[in-house]
Nucleic acid binder design. Structure first.
Lengths: 338, 338
DNA sequence: AGTTCCGATTGCAGCGCTGCAAAGGACTAT
DNA sequence: ATAGTCCTTTGCAGCGCTGCAATCGGAACT
């Protein structure tokens, strides 16, 4: 049995298909009586519009794609959880792609891919986009980038003020009396700009407090996972002069670091205070609970979606902007104690 | 500038649009020379097929939707991470929906929704489907259900053997010498069948060991979150006769329970041993690491996707089947100690 | 050489909807 | 009564592709 179409409804209601379309879309001026007739017919036949056909006719898919490195990283999962309803509210479905942290994959996604017609725009949270990825990108693809700051001026960024947030985090460690503070997560190469901003905040806080920075306490990591935090922390604890506090560039890193500290029989925060970044749900339940920088994920999601939809609707290319979502310092047990 | 179409390619290659279509789809018998001509034209024009148009013509969207209650629940995130590549490999894109744990929302999704045309099939991991949800469901929607066992015989289930797995978990607790074992997560009502299977395993293990079950140690929870575990554990510890081990129906519940135990100054596993369910990544890094039942998520994903695609391709309705993925017991610190 | 056969290629029609512009109808103004 | 105005409704064409069945051309056979 065929699905009922616009035409079926039109026949039953005694109007033209075009009028049914107008009713369905809430468009134009339709008399109340006509609308009533059509709606009755729709209800009677159980009609539902064929989105595929609409997509072809309008040339728009009504879908946006969100690209994240890993779905099972809590920060991204929580972000997605915020993006999906925000997009849905504006009439967009969300497709999700994960790159598995593969930069080449990221480059392909913003390039001229064969799936281009499936989405009207893209929100991407890259691990690190290189300049050459950008030049190869499909110029017809409305794009909003989360986190990264690199840009060619044709797309938008949404993020928090990483430098300010990092400065606050480290200032907090200083405020609770710590003087030898380590940083875990630096990435001193072109695609690691997000990490570098945090390192900049780390330095700024020291400077503001008149403290010297021990460069050897800035530990680089390839990623922001638990294992990276655990590994880095092991190296720090193996030193003759271990730190008394650690600023971790993600809560996962902090979790891994704490794991190592406790495993050595040391205490958090008494021996080593730890602060993270992202405010993932885990950190509120782990033992100890993790002090952190909490980005306003709902705001990030809303800003990104709004901006993307604006960009999709725009007939002219619009210049890229930098959008800042709020953040706040959330001290918990890993710095304050119990 | 218009996107290049099939017709443009055809004109350049000097063949009919239909032949270009054949080449693009790898269909039929196309001479090598023709294929070469067409491919050259495609490359020259940078042609990419319009998926929207194809969708309309074929009546298929090439998308499947995966519905989970919460995206930021690690178990579901990890499952999705496995489903997406499995689907992609078979040529399907994955749409993701979250129901926020709203059963009504679940019912609507499998009902005659307006987004029906957007996907060819659905994999749903329900919090609990009631029989009436099933009767209202859209019979044209190929469906694979994860976890739940309720069925009307028109769709498939994929899951692990919950009873066997739960039995193993509790047997493990018994094997390490525990005799007063609690269970956290029971849901003794129609939509809580998944939980009830675990309770059944809990009983089976006791019976096999000749131990009596203390019914008052079976604690119900509305959900499987950390907070539920923490709350339930608090109740257990407030008793005059607290348990010496706990079987939690998810790793999150276990995490919350452990949090409470440690917060009381008690030790895990010395005072109370804890075992969870799901093997989420967290459990491998928390303090202590969490013993658990590890479902083979890749197998679940593969089985679900394969079966769904089969169902989509089928011309006749095919009867629902029960598919079992492997699982294994993974003992860690929360039962074995350090 | 004529006929048959078979695989490669083509043409047509249509998937169900919307953009556009024109037609139709009711109502007002003269 | 007639023309003008404005708003609702309509018809047409087409979005870009594929299903189907017909066609074409060359090879094989008699």
């Amino acid at each position: 049995m065929r699905e009922t179409t616009l035409r079926d409804v039109a026949d039953l209601a005694g109007v033209s298909p075009r009028t049914v379309s107008n009713v369905v879309n809430g468009y134009a001026k339709v008399t109340d009586s006509t609308r009533a007739k059509v709606e009755a017919a729709i209800a009677e036949l159980g009609y539902r519009p064929n989105v595929l056909a609409r997509n072809l006719a309008t040339g728009r898919s009504g879908q946006i794609v969100v690209v994240v490195p890993y779905l099972d990283t809590p920060y991204f999962a929580e972000l997605l959880q915020a993006i999906i309803p925000a997009a849905r509210k504006l009439g967009y479905n969300v497709l999700i792609d994960q790159t598995d942290g593969d930069r080449q994959h990221e480059g392909e996604l913003i390039g001229r891919g064969s799936r281009r017609h499936l989405f009207d725009g893209m929100i991407i949270s890259p691990l690190g986009l290189a300049q050459e990825d950008l030049t190869a990108r499909d110029p017809s693809l409305p794009l909003v980038v989360l986190g990264e700051r690199v840009s060619d001026g044709t797309f938008d960024h949404v993020g928090i003020d990483d430098v300010a947030a990092s400065t606050e985090a480290v200032a907090h460690l200083i405020a609770i009396g710590r003087r030898r503070i380590a940083a875990i997560g630096d990435q001193p190469y072109p695609t690691g700009e997000a990490a570098q901003l945090r390192t900049r905040g780390f330095r700024a806080a020291h400077e503001a407090a008149g403290l010297p920075v021990d460069e050897s306490l800035i530990i680089g990591t390839a990623r922001f996972n638990r294992i990276d935090g655990a590994t880095a922390m092991t190296a720090l604890l193996d030193r003759a002069d271990p730190p008394d506090a650690v600023f971790c560039y993600s809560d996962l890193v902090a979790s891994g670091a704490i794991h190592t500290v406790l495993g050595r029989g040391l205490r958090v925060p008494e021996d080593i205070a730890v602060i993270g970044y992202d405010d993932i749900e885990d950190g509120r339940y782990s033992q100890p609970t993790i002090s952190t920088i909490s980005p306003d994920k709902k705001a990030i999601a809303q800003l990104a979606v709004d901006r993307l939809v604006l960009r999709i609707a725009a007939s002219e290319p619009i210049p890229g902007v930098e959008l800042r979502a709020p953040h706040e310092l959330v001290p918990r047990q890993s710095t304050l104690g119990y």
